[in-house]
Design a protein around this nucleic acid. Structure first.
Lengths: 221, 221
DNA sequence: GTTCTATTCAATGGAATGCTTGAATAGAAC
DNA sequence: GTTCTATTCAAGCATTCCATTGAATAGAAC
């Protein structure tokens, strides 16, 4: 007969990865890290938590093996330890979307009304990029742009957009993108651009989807 | 600016699915349910817990939407609410295998030494089934056989195997299978058969892998 | 060496979780 | 109707988890 203690311990270990994700703040961290590596302070700002608290969550993720660290001078960068982790996060999100009820309402409440916003599919953007008749704006924080972006996109963090409006060719069709469908930066950008009389749309999804569809990306500033 | 409370609530909701899996006993339940629906008492036996405790875990899974129930006479059957859940479980397992350290040791400690056991791949078994020169034994509990099994397999729960040895054609090559690579029933069966002088091997993986490879399956006893 | 800064550590209190026990419920069988 | 049985509910206690606070550390800049 198999030993019961052994079986329990095995499943406890298997559940460790789930435990690491079983907290809203850590889920948020993993989601942000999906966009690329970030420093602790940066992440703390991103998830609206104290640095100490963020650090503790990160260390829990580290212990579970979901992230790894790299030191650069005085700061420490965290990143996902492998692509499987990002797959896990996306699968979890799909399951939650399908099965956690009330989630759609929460998402709608957070994202707000998108009915007035023009959108563009990945395929259309790819074609227009090939034809060169589009300006693509990456409105995520510049650290995320640096870690990877759609090839040909300009980095215009959402906070800088208003000030840099005049740098953007006023005749061109403009497409803004950010992290994905839950991310509201691109929405804000499109609204701001539309108010300024530009022909603006948001990419339906975000950078991770673009990258995992193996479409052209670039790194650095 | 987006409301922070809304964002936190959204991610908390997304983390709900992970919380449901963030416990060894619940992970075990999901794993068993991967094989098909089961009653509460049955599941309690399977995970070596009291019925009350098992019931509470099941209800947590139910609240998270990962399972659904069906009443049949006096008992209640639980099953996974959709195939995505089983995908989630497998992804989680892959992540744990890759990143939780000490897991391999735990698995090895539980599974024991397999070096003396002959194994057969899915492809080989499929060919032999087509040629008809193999006896296939499903050594899982009969409830799991009923919920779905390799077409052509006989149901011989591991506890009954010794008593039914003489029913098995003594000239044939015998292949035993159970739930997957962590499942030890098939190992036990192969050892028992080998001791009895039979030509026995275990299928490398288990029924779920067979089914998701879309190979021939059947239901019922 | 000293100072500065990003990160981590340690201790706290309050909330959620997990297992146990014994009682309650809701259909089935009679 | 009564009895039986599978499941759920409710209360209790020990454990773990989470955000906060303030102190400690380790490397960079000077």
């Amino acid at each position: 007969m198999a030993d019961h203690a052994g079986k329990a311990a095995l499943y406890d270990a298997l559940a460790e990865s789930a435990k690491a994700l079983a907290n809203g703040r850590r889920a948020e961290l993993i989601d942000v890290l999906t966009q690329g590596e970030r420093s602790v302070e940066d992440l703390a700002l991103e998830i609206d938590q104290t640095v100490a608290n963020t650090s503790q969550h990160l260390q829990r993720l580290l212990r579970a093996g979901l992230v790894r660290t790299r030191r650069d001078g005085t700061r420490i960068f965290y990143e996902l330890s492998s692509p499987v982790v990002s797959t896990l996060w996306h699968t979890m999100r799909r399951v939650a979307e399908e099965h956690v009820d009330g989630l759609e309402q929460l998402a709608a409440a957070y994202v707000g009304d998108r009915s007035g916003l023009d959108t563009m599919t990945r395929d259309e953007l790819r074609e227009r990029l090939r034809d060169g008749d589009v300006v693509v704006l990456d409105v995520r924080p510049s650290a995320e742009y640096a870690a990877g972006h759609i090839r040909g996109a300009l980095s215009v963090p959402i906070g800088d957009l208003r000030a840099r409006l005049q740098d953007i060719d006023s005749g061109a069709r403009v497409v803004a993108y950010c992290r994905g469908s839950y991310c509201v930066y691109a929405d804000e950008a499109v609204r701001l651009l539309a108010e300024a009389g530009r022909d603006a749309a948001r990419l339906e999804d975000g950078f991770p989807e673009w990258a995992s569809a193996r479409l052209p990306v670039a790194r650095g500033m």
